[in-house]
Nucleic acid binder design. Structure first.
Lengths: 215, 215
DNA sequence: TAGATTGTTAATCGATTAACAATC
DNA sequence: TAGATTGTTAATCGATTAACAATC
C-alpha cells in the first residue's frame, strides 16, 4: 500500500477489472492471476499488479488473486460498498436507454430521479420514475442524497444543467453532451461523448476503397 | 508536417477541435488562436499547436488559425471529406437513441442500416430505416459500402456481432457493450462503454457524507 | 514598428513495461 | 522441492508543457 496520488488512468481501469472479476465469480472461478487478467482484458500483467498494489496487497505470491476478495476490495475502492444515488437529467431517447440500463448496474449505483426541462415530459414515467421539473432538483437531491448527475440533454442546454447540478450539491457528473463543461474545482466530470469516439474512428479507415463492389 | 506515427491521443482530440471550430464558424468567427482554443477546450495551447502541426502548417504566425480553413483540413484528416456509411447493430433503446443522433452528425457520417438478432425487431422502423436480420449484414455492407459498425446489443452478444461485422468486412467498430472485444489486427475498436465512466466517477466522491439532511 | 502567435526543439512529467527478489 | 506469481524497483517509453526563434 502506497499513499501516492492515484492517477485517473488507474482509477478508470478499476471498473474494468471489477466487471471481469464478476464474470469469473459467476463462473465459480476462485482465483485469477495478473497474467490471465491481462490476457482477457488486453492489458499488461505488470500494469495490473501495479494498479492493484496502489490500494493494498490483495494477491498471494505463487497463487494469484482470490476473486471474491478482490471484488470486495475493488468495490470498496470505488465507494460501491455503499449505495450511490444518481440523478438523470434529460428524459429523451438516450436518457430512456440509460435508465433501462439500471438493472445492469447492480453495482450499488442507482438512478433514483429523472428530470427534464420540457413541460411535455414532466410527469411521464421512465422506468418506474416520474419525470420531474428541473426546479425540483435541489430539493430532490437533498432528500434522496443524490451525489452523481448524468446529463443527457441537448448540447446547448448542457452547461446550464451542469450549473444547476453543481448548485444543488452534486459531486460528479457524467456528461453525454458534446461540449466541454465548466465546473468548479471539486466537481468531477467524465465525458461520455460518443461522437468524439465515432468521428475519430474514421481516421483509421483504409484510405481509398470507399465503396467497392468487388470482394 | 512530420511523418511520425500519430498517437491515438492526438487523433481523439481532432473531433474535439472540429466541434468547437464548427461552433466558431456558426458564430462567424474568422480566426482563432491556440490560446483561445485552449481556454475553451481545457487544453494546453502548446499541445494544440503541436497536434495540428503533425498534419501540416495550418496557422499563421502572429495571426492564428483561419477557422474555415482549419475545419476543412481537420475534416480531411479524419476522412470526413467523403461520406462514411455506418451500420448499427442492436435496435434497442440505445440504438434508437443513437440513430436519432444521426441528424447531429452532419459530419458526413451516417447510419445507413440497422440490424438486430431478435425476430420481433425485424422490419420495425428506426428513424426511417427498416431493421434487418443480421443474416443480411454481409450483403448490405457490400452494397452500401459500409465501413464502420456500432454495436449496441447486450454484452453477451457483442463478441459474436463483432465477429460478424469483421467477417462482413467492416474496418472499425464503436462498441457500447461492456466487454473487451477481440478483433483481428487492422480492425479498430473504440470502447464507448459508459458503465466504466460512471463507476469510476464514484471513486472521486467525498467520503463520508453519504446522505446528509443538513445544509 | 511593436505585439501576437505560430511551429518546433528541448525539458519535464507521467505512465507503462521489464526484471527480479520474495514467497506461496 | 520446483514452479508460479506477487509486489516493487528500475528502465523505458510516450505524452505534455515550456521556451523561443521565426514571422505575420
Amino acid at each position: 500500500m502506497k499513499s501516492e496520488k492515484i492517477s485517473d488512468a488507474v482509477v478508470r481501469r478499476m471498473p474494468v477489472y471489477l466487471r471481469y472479476l464478476n464474470e469469473l465469480h459467476n463462473r465459480d472461478v476462485m482465483t485469477v492471476s495478473s497474467q490471465e487478467l491481462g490476457q482477457n482484458l488486453d492489458l499488461n500483467p505488470a500494469q495490473i499488479r501495479k494498479d492493484l498494489a496502489y490500494f493494498g496487497d490483495f494477491g498471494r505470491k505463487g497463487i494469484g488473486y482470490d476473486v471474491a476478495y478482490l471484488i470486495e476490495k475493488i468495490r470498496q475502492i470505488l465507494n460501491l460498498d455503499q449505495e450511490i444515488s444518481v440523478a438523470l437529467v434529460g428524459a429523451g431517447n438516450l436518457g430512456q436507454a440509460l435508465s433501462n440500463y439500471n438493472m445492469y448496474l447492480k453495482d450499488n449505483m442507482k438512478i433514483v430521479a429523472v428530470f427534464d426541462i420540457a413541460e411535455a415530459k414532466i410527469g411521464t414515467q421512465i422506468n418506474y420514475l416520474s419525470v420531474q421539473p428541473i426546479a425540483e432538483l435541489p430539493e430532490t437531491v437533498k432528500k434522496l442524497g443524490i451525489r452523481i448527475g448524468i446529463i443527457t440533454v441537448p448540447h446547448w442546454e448542457a452547461q446550464r444543467v451542469a450549473d444547476q447540478l453543481v448548485e444543488a450539491g452534486i459531486q460528479a457528473i457524467l456528461n453525454f453532451a458534446p461540449v466541454i463543461l465548466k465546473v468548479p474545482p471539486g466537481v468531477r466530470v467524465h465525458a461520455a461523448d460518443f461522437t468524439t469516439d465515432l468521428l475519430s474512428l474514421a481516421y483509421y479507415l483504409d484510405q481509398g476503397k470507399e465503396h467497392s463492389n468487388e470482394s
